[in-house]
Design a protein around this nucleic acid. Structure first.
Lengths: 251, 251
DNA sequence: TTACATTTTAATGTCTGACATTTAATCTGG
DNA sequence: CCAGATTAAATGTCAGACATTAAAATGTAA
């Protein structure tokens, strides 16, 4: 593991890269202890604060964890799916909000991916996952629910559907797509009638999943996607109209 | 933005979280300059090295960038899809290698996602993307190619297929799934005959995409998935046999 | 001998203060 | 008006110190 002191790149970034590459290459294995900060400082011929900045970079990516005390130090972290979810969701959310991704594009991606899971989920879903879907449908039917709570329940419902595929890699990939959509979905005002329509479609999906009817799940998801887009467009239209009124009225 | 000095959590982690939350909430907008390190140290009532560790954590997630000099400082970064790809690939790769994800599970996820893109790609692919697919098929047909180069070309081919959907969010999500598989694929030894079979399937896919025949793309991808799994299983079997011989022969 | 309390020790976490380096803005002389 | 020198403000780096934590080693009494 070497760095170039003459490079214009931050020393701490170089050190982080060197260690990260070693982890990816398998030279440092899970739960292995890195040298102490003082030893790393010696090795790379830099000061301890610089080493610490490098280690914090790696910690931010969940590549290492640190422990204080006599037998403490920095250890290569076993990257867990649960840890990766959070980062995936954060990153996806910011990508959507910072890159002017249209609702349509995000929606299309989300449902395309979800439909990829659906056949597997219809086949393999556990009773527990089915129960979660039913429970969320019930929650969504209750009046007085805020739009945010409705959306959150929607996310839980769809995550149960995705998790039903019983493939952790799929669940991980989908976590970002589904949850990152939530802020966009929150812009939609769900009227009583639109909630009713969504709950009806959710029920169809749960029924089809219970009956292991994959094609039915697929067609219902297509309907749900179309309806979601329709709702979003009506929001955009209403907003445009309000803006137009505002422009003409005051004078 | 506040932190709790009595918490057992690292101060730098708390500060990073406070700033990250502010970015996600939109309180800090793209390209906005954060206060200087000295000002942040004052604000949070910590020392400058602690603030710096927090900023390095955020930099590791591409949430901020720093600039030296008179008008320098830390700026909220516009998270780009290209930046996110790299992290996505790194994370996915480590997830697979550290969590004993079986080839079958990873393969299933990859092809399920890829098939989600295929219909869109058949419909929208540009001539350029089609040309990339053809070029990679040609490369894959050349004898003397190393297994690694063959795999790399395979990745490029499939990325062109995925990008053909013309949906950046889909491409981003797929980047991790497709590229993270590469180390696993590299374990497979591609014989002349298996390469021939794969090239034939790739050609079928390219033809179907050119003809905008979505169902044909789908069925061919299913065949390709089956064949890929078959190859992987034969590798595992061969390895097990070698191990068995090794156990009985030497004495 | 064993169980418990104490001390030691090795590591990370944090602080202070200083200097180096970079870069844009400002000043200055032609 | 322009080119070069100067200045100022920020990040990058360093050295050394102390605080805190937690495990291991040690000591002590039943």
């Amino acid at each position: 593991m070497k760095i170039d002191p003459d490079s214009t790149v931050d020393l701490s970034a170089q050190i982080a890269k060197a260690i990260r590459d070693a982890i990816i290459a398998g030279d440092l294995i899970v739960d292995q202890r890195l040298p102490s900060e003082a030893e790393l400082a010696d090795h790379f011929e830099v000061s301890r604060p610089t080493v610490r900045e490098a280690l914090k970079r790696l910690a931010a990516q969940s590549l290492i964890r640190t422990q204080r005390g006599a037998t403490g130090g920095a250890f290569v972290n076993r990257l867990r799916f649960e840890d990766a979810y959070a980062q995936q969701v954060t990153t996806s959310t910011l990508l959507l909000s910072m890159n002017a991704v249209s609702f349509d594009v995000a929606c299309e991606a989300r449902y395309a991916l979800e439909r990829a899971c659906a056949p597997l989920s219809a086949q393999r879903r556990t009773p527990d996952q089915l129960a979660t879907m039913r429970a969320e449908i019930h929650r969504q039917s209750q009046p007085g629910l805020t739009d945010e709570a409705f959306c959150a329940s929607d996310v839980t419902f769809h995550r149960a559907l995705v998790d039903g595929a019983g493939n952790k890699v799929l669940s991980y990939q989908l976590a970002g797509a589904v949850e990152a959509m939530q802020p966009l979905m929150n812009m939609i005002t769900f009227t009583a009638r639109s909630r009713e329509a969504i709950v009806a479609l959710h029920t169809d999906i749960a029924d089809a999943v219970e009956a292991q009817d994959a094609p039915k799940v697929d067609t219902t998801l297509i309907k749900l996607e179309a309806y979601t887009r329709e709702l979003a467009h009506s929001v955009v239209t209403a907003r445009a109209e309000r803006a137009a009124n505002k422009e003409t009225k005051p004078a």
